[in-house]
Computed example of a mutant assay.
Amino acid sequence: MLEVIALTIIFALILYLQLPSIIKRNNIREIGAYSSLMLIGIIYTYGYVLDIELPNPTHAVDFVFRPVTELLNKLLGG
Rank of each mutant, 00 (worst) to 15 (best):
M1E: 15
M1H: 14
L2T: 10
L2G: 09
E3F: 11
V4S: 13
V4Q: 12
V4A: 12
I5Y: 12
I5V: 15
I5P: 00
A6R: 11
A6G: 08
L7R: 06
T8P: 00
I9F: 15
I9C: 10
I10N: 04
I10D: 01
F11R: 06
A12S: 13
L15R: 05
Y16W: 15
L17K: 13
L17G: 08
Q18F: 11
Q18P: 02
L19N: 10
S21E: 13
S21M: 09
I22S: 09
I22V: 14
I22Q: 12
I22Y: 13
I23P: 04
K24I: 07
K24W: 08
R25W: 05
R25E: 15
N26S: 15
N27M: 10
I28R: 13
E30C: 06
I31N: 03
G32N: 13
G32S: 14
G32H: 10
A33E: 14
Y34A: 11
Y34G: 03
M38N: 06
L39Q: 11
L39E: 04
L39T: 15
L39V: 11
L39S: 14
I40S: 09
I40D: 04
G41E: 07
G41I: 04
I43M: 05
Y44G: 06
Y44D: 13
Y44M: 06
Y44S: 08
Y44H: 08
T45F: 04
Y46G: 03
G47S: 11
G47R: 13
G47P: 05
G47V: 06
V49T: 11
L50P: 01
L50M: 15
D51R: 05
E53S: 10
L54A: 06
L54S: 01
L54V: 03
P55Q: 11
N56A: 08
N56K: 13
P57I: 05
P57E: 01
T58W: 04
H59K: 10
H59Y: 09
A60D: 05
A60Q: 05
V61A: 14
V61G: 03
D62C: 00
V64H: 00
V64C: 00
F65T: 09
F65C: 00
R66T: 11
R66V: 01
V68D: 00
V68G: 01
T69H: 01
T69V: 07
E70D: 12
E70A: 02
N73E: 14
K74F: 09
K74A: 14
L75D: 00
G77L: 05
G77F: 02
G78A: 07
G78T: 00
G78Q: 03
